[in-house]
């Protein structure tokens, strides 16, 4: 996936976004702590990191399922978290989301036709026969049959359900879709189907994706650029090829070394970077670099000052004091 996107404008700009959850007794869970990134039009930005690092929270804050604690999300000139109710309805037509769990993301009491048609109804796009026709079109777009329209979610397999979720998001013709681990709940054989569907749709409709995942090889396949998160902070952002060829942040290096290589010879002889210790609690993160307690290169400066995300090479941003 080598698309030339350097001359495209930014569709989404995230500036110093923070999302804290109030845990009571004056303590906050810092799920997302001051992150900034941009997504260009027509691009797929992969967002990776281990469980609990704030990937999903970031995605949900972008479509304003959560209110941001601080910072801004600028979408096509709109400041998303300053929009009033009416403008939010308009924003909903621009930015949609595909969810992780295909079993929990479809209302079990609604037919497929009503699930896909919900967005059409909310925004009053089509009525009567045209609505029905549009739903059939969408079903066929995602590789399902017309006959499925009157069935209920429990009659479908995981992969089919996820495609219904995709059709629901597409129904109102958004420009931008947050894919919140859309494939991690699926069988490996089905994962490829869904990823290919997403790629085809991007090509056809010119969609922009934020693709959240923890499966690194799948992310590399679908993304133009990849952002790596750890404990609510952004560690490294660069093109997917560069990230794999020359990762600069120690955390990224450790993550990449965890990918198994499908060659027993190499796999047996290579050395893995094994991270010591655990992820600190996001309620009380360490001052300075968030990765300090697990980083084998940790210096004094890392414990004192949080590194800023700097552009060390063109298109290659890293938050580490030690990378020159």
């Amino acid at each position: 996936m080598a698309k030339d996107l350097s001359n495209k404008k930014n569709l989404l700009e995230v500036k110093n976004l923070k999302k804290y959850f109030d845990m009571g007794r004056g303590s906050d869970l810092k799920a997302v702590d001051d992150i900034s990134f941009t997504i260009r039009e027509g691009e797929t930005l992969g967002l990776v990191g281990e469980s609990g690092c704030g990937k999903s929270t970031t995605g949900r804050t972008l479509v304003r399922l959560y209110e941001a604690t601080g910072g801004e999300v600028i979408f096509d000139g709109m400041n998303v978290h300053k929009l009033n109710k009416k403008e939010m309805v308009k924003y909903a037509r621009e930015a949609q989301m595909i969810f992780q769990d295909p079993y929990a993301s479809l209302n079990p009491r609604m037919t497929v036709s009503d699930i896909i048609g919900e967005g059409i109804d909310i925004h009053g796009l089509y009525k009567g026969k045209k609505r029905q026709k549009r739903i059939y079109e969408l079903l066929e777009t995602v590789g399902l049959n017309r006959e499925h329209a009157n069935r209920f979610p429990h009659e479908f397999s995981g992969g089919q359900r996820q495609r219904i979720g995709v059709a629901r998001a597409l129904a109102i013709e958004p420009k931008f879709i947050v894919c919140d681990e859309p494939i991690s709940a699926l069988d490996v054989s089905i994962q490829a189907q869904v990823v290919n569907l997403l790629e085809e749709l991007q090509e056809e409709l010119g969609l922009t994706y934020l693709f959240i995942a923890h499966d690194l090889s799948m992310v590399k396949h679908i993304s133009d650029r990849i952002a790596v998160m750890y404990l609510g902070a952004m560690m490294e952002i660069t093109t997917s090829q560069t990230l794999y060829d020359e990762p600069l942040h120690p955390y990224t290096q450790a993550l990449l070394s965890a990918i198994p290589i499908p060659d027993p010879e190499i796999e047996r002889n290579r050395e893995r970077m094994i991270l010591e210790g655990d992820v600190p609690s996001p309620i009380d993160p360490p001052p300075g670099c968030k990765f300090q307690n697990r980083c084998q290169y940790c210096k004094d400066i890392c414990r004192e000052k949080a590194p800023e995300l700097r552009e060390v090479k063109p298109e290659h941003w890293v938050a580490c004091h030690l990378v020159k």
Binding site: R60, V63, L65, M88, V89, A92, R93, A95, Q96, M97, F99, Q100, D101, A104, S105, L106, N107, M110, E118, G119, I122, H123, G165, R168, I172
Partner: peptide, 22 residues
């Protein structure tokens, strides 16, 4: 807190719709 309710909110559904349909 289930994802299908979040999906409806992302689609722009108002409180009445979420309560009565979901």
């Amino acid at each position: 807190e289930m994802e299908f309710v979040m999906a409806a909110r992302t689609l722009g559904a108002d409180a009445t719709r979420i309560i009565s349909k979901h």
